[in-house]
Design a protein around this nucleic acid. Structure first.
Lengths: 185, 185
DNA sequence: TCCCACATGTAATGGGTTACATGATTGA
DNA sequence: TCAATCATGTAACCCATTACATGTGGGA
């Protein structure tokens, strides 16, 4: 599927970036909750996309020697991005290691299961708190008609990420309640 | 992380299975919503786990010639499974191609975005209906103290899968509402 | 001066999918 | 007899992570 290709095209369609910048977008940036890649995957991909004529770069000197490549998207790149964006794909099978453990709950003792679920609950709560802090900051920057804001994309992924965590947390609470019904506490 | 290893150990801890059976569990079975693997990955892994002494098999003749390997978990296998189950791991970064497209919403026209979101909405609704049918069947087989049922693991993953889809659907509805606020319909 | 962030690349390895390959069994 | 399912394996390839490798810039 070469999704990284489209992730890079999409980022560059928002503005010019270096490979280092792209790596940071995935690491700490807005889209990090739903896609990421290490620099060791990004640099070869940038080279490939350049060879394919979908992006281009200009070398910029930082300070006195350090060379930096600033990439931008080409018309061909925009077209391929657009084709991917408007193509309807199937719902992919998402893997979740914690749910695999949950499925094997009967291979644990009730107390072990409770500990495992409580740990997951705490971690999800923490993550939600982090996302909510981000969301507060974002809301300050946004005015009313959400979909017209230049931050609409960020708004979409942040609201989705928060609700994903909320749903997980609500389910974990229910699961813990079911587990409490069994004694051996 | 070798998660497939533990997925196989966990399945075999529930009962003896052939490689073919394991492939089917992932394809159509109860855990398919949260983990899967193709037979081309399963057979080499079974061999490896056998070499490591974590599982064993007996050959059974099906019909008159067809050989089938029935695998079971060993005490060493049970111990490794238990260590994995009770170990607290970090929340992994889950990738979601649709959310990547959502982040790039400003690279689409409002109408294209609406079409994309409506398609996702329909597909998620369909998937939820499928899961709910499964859930109805499961509930018939279950009696009250949920956590004591031999189907508790199945119950956990099904309820989680349903709520995951419900959460996605609710967010898609909101996103579509935001998109409707922009004209060009 | 020393550390951290900036900046770019390659190599080795692991996990996973698609394709290649073969054969038996069962029921319509 | 024909098709679908049962049953097991290997090979080639792709995607992704970890580790290896190097050097500059800026601020304390």
């Amino acid at each position: 599927m070469r999704v990284l290709k489209y992730a890079i095209l999409g980022l560059l369609d928002k503005g010019e970036l270096s490979g280092y910048d792209i790596a940071n977008q995935f690491k700490e940036g807005e889209i990090g909750q739903f896609w990421s890649a290490k620099h060791s995957q990004i640099y070869p991909e940038l080279k490939k996309l350049t060879d394919e004529g979908l992006i281009q770069y200009q070398t910029v000197i930082q300070g006195s020697k350090l060379e930096k490549k600033i990439y931008s998207i080409t018309p061909d790149g925009k077209q391929e991005l657009h084709e991917w964006l408007t193509h309807f794909g199937p719902i992919p099978a998402v893997k979740d290691e914690f749910m695999l453990k949950a499925y094997f709950v009967s291979s644990m003792s009730p107390n072990e299961a409770k500990d495992l679920f409580r740990d997951q609950f705490n971690k999800r709560k923490e993550k939600l708190a982090f996302l909510e802090k981000r969301f507060d900051e974002l809301q300050k920057k946004m005015t009313d008609p959400v979909a017209r804001s230049p931050h609409f994309g960020h708004y979409l992924v942040l609201t989705r990420a928060m609700e994903r965590e909320k749903g997980y947390i609500a389910w974990l609470e229910k699961a813990l309640k079911w587990l409490e019904e069994v004694p051996e506490s």
